[in-house]
Design a protein around this nucleic acid. Structure first.
Length: 170
DNA sequence: TTAGTGATATCC
DNA sequence: GATATCACTAAA
């Protein structure tokens, strides 16, 4: 089953844990289809979240977070790495879920490198998309939570909040 | 531990 | 126009 827009229309704090165990499918061409199960996500939610790009308000870059849910938000980090997010929640409620790792490729930039996701995918839909989508095969691993990574600048409260969801290893 | 890398926001 | 910042990785 392919996840449709209504899945992403909900709050990021609901979508992020449910994305764990889902499968990102990336079709490069008719003969090459990559699949990777999501094992870690993080929530970036609202203008008051200092770690969220939208905390500085609506800009050219962050306007996509204010738009339609189910869009892919791809962001270039440190000049080298593409990070893949999915916009969630209703319009004008800026929030997204960062796809932080897959089962095979740990690390947000490794994942996008493997899946060949880059800036061209920014602002595209993650559903009704012939090149990339997310499937649910019914698998639901046990989850654990942890503080988010790499956001020391966000201050004590936002740095320590447990908005990171990880598939528990068995 | 550190270098590499470039888009974005912010300050002239 | 210039510069400071940054949700990372690989090599050592």
């Amino acid at each position: 089953m392919i996840l449709q827009r209504d899945f992403f229309e909900r709050d990021a704090l609901v979508v992020a844990p449910e994305l764990i165990g889902k499968i990102i499918v990336r079709k490069l061409d008719d003969h090459t289809i990559l699949r990777e199960r999501i094992s870690e996500t993080e929530v970036y939610r609202g203008e008051e979240d200092k770690a969220c790009h939208a905390s500085k308000g609506k800009t050219q870059r962050t306007k996509i977070l204010y738009g339609e849910s189910g869009k892919i938000y791809v962001y270039l980090c440190y000049g080298i790495h593409w990070l893949m997010n999915i916009v969630t929640g209703e319009r004008n409620n800026p929030q997204c879920v960062l796809i932080r790792c897959g089962e095979v490729h740990n690390g947000p930039a490794k994942l996008t490198k493997y899946l060949q996701i880059d800036g061209n995918f920014n602002d595209q839909k993650i559903y009704e998309n012939p090149h990339v989508w997310i499937e649910d095969d019914g698998f639901q691993p046990e989850l654990k939570t942890a503080p988010r990574v790499g956001i020391d600048y966000a201050g004590d409260y936002w740095r320590d909040i447990a908005w990171r969801y990880i598939a528990e290893k068995k």
